[in-house]
Write a protein that binds this DNA or RNA. Structure first.
Lengths: 202, 202
DNA sequence: CTTAATATGTACTAAGTGGTAAGTAACCCT
DNA sequence: AGGGTTACTTACCACTTAGTACATATTAAG
């Protein structure tokens, strides 16, 4: 058997780095949304031609979905690490402050591509929209499970409605994405984060 | 001088009602966003041909802006009436519960066209995006002014940061629009509304 | 050096985009 | 009945869209 993986497969080698190209595509989708992004936008940003794009990523829709995966696995991702905090309050705290820093970070497009990539969209983007909705619901589901665990651990009172708590937190996080698009600064979002924590049971 | 107004102007009379056509256009823009809506989508929904659309509304962009005006002046609009409530808390309360009912209302597209009409978009939609951002900021500005009045009236403690309060409320309202797009029910949003009021100073 | 395999650039397709020209139909006023 | 004015219908425009055929270039293996 021959070696598998990225080490010199037969044929002409790819002239671009697939990961940095995906990063470029992500940035365009993030700024312009799925409907607002054309293939020319993508090939221009990625520095490749259309046949290379189609060979490497399938088509526009699959490229988008791969870009979303990349987005969620970024080093600056704040969601999953926050879930690991010891108490429910700290989970919420880290998630809110992480979002405040991340969504208004001037080094990248404002907001969150999972929220604004295909919110209202054409029929051509219906599958993409659905995929994004599912991602958002999964995130909220993870919060819900974390808060139920906190109830089981006695960290949250048994009387707490974990579902509403998770949905409230999801609402604030998603609202922060819009605020970032409105031009809100990280500092402003931090103050919003602090205030929204006042509703959190201790 | 002849009579002005809608009473029999010269020429062939318009064969469609301009207001109901605008209502149809609004619904399409609301569901599909500016970039996701084509002129064919619009003419199909409005039941007219392109030249009629252009004669009556200018072009796609102007039609969108007129549709937004219509949206904000709807009978079901909850924003402005809520501002008139006697106390800051009641203002927030009515706004949040109004949003919960409105944004998840199954008789219309989910969410809010001012938020999702052109969040991430193409360069062709840049002017529209800017117009929507301004509308959102104006709404928040109105909230801020209302809360500052409440402070002056002694209804809110002088120590309250009215700006953050307004921004927090804006964040929750905008987050509710995303939640509605995720499929949240009016009841779920009501629980979120109730919870977000816990952060509100009394 | 040839062959097989993959990537590349150029050029193309069919369909859809926003927007318009031009002829015709319907109305009011004289 | 005719003229003036407006709206409607049909057909079109130039351009962009997502996606692809094809010939060429670059590599590894035999």
């Amino acid at each position: 058997m021959s070696a598998v993986g990225s080490s010199s497969p037969v044929g002409r080698p790819r002239a671009f780095d697939i990961d940095t190209a995906l990063e470029k595509a992500l940035e365009v989708f993030w700024r312009k949304g799925y409907d607002g992004t054309s293939l020319s936008d993508l090939t221009d940003a990625m520095g490749i031609n259309k046949p290379s794009l189609y060979a490497a990523f399938g088509n526009k829709e699959q490229l988008f979905l791969k870009a979303i995966e990349k987005y969620e696995s970024r080093p600056c991702a704040f969601f999953m690490p926050a879930l690991e905090k010891p108490t429910a309050y700290e989970v919420a705290e880290h998630m809110l402050y992480g979002a405040a820093a991340n969504m208004a970070n001037k080094d990248q497009p404002q907001g969150c591509v999972v929220i604004q990539g295909a919110l209202s969209c054409s029929e051509a983007a219906a599958a993409v929209k659905e995929a994004l909705i599912n991602r958002r619901l999964e995130g909220q589901q993870k919060l819900l499970q974390r808060f139920e665990r906190a109830k089981a651990e006695g960290d949250l009172p048994a009387s707490v409605d974990a579902e509403t708590l998770a949905q409230y937190l999801g609402t604030v996080l998603q609202g922060m994405a819009i605020q970032a698009n409105n031009g809100a600064t990280p500092e402003q979002l931090q103050r919003v984060a602090k205030m929204s924590l006042l509703a959190f049971p201790r």
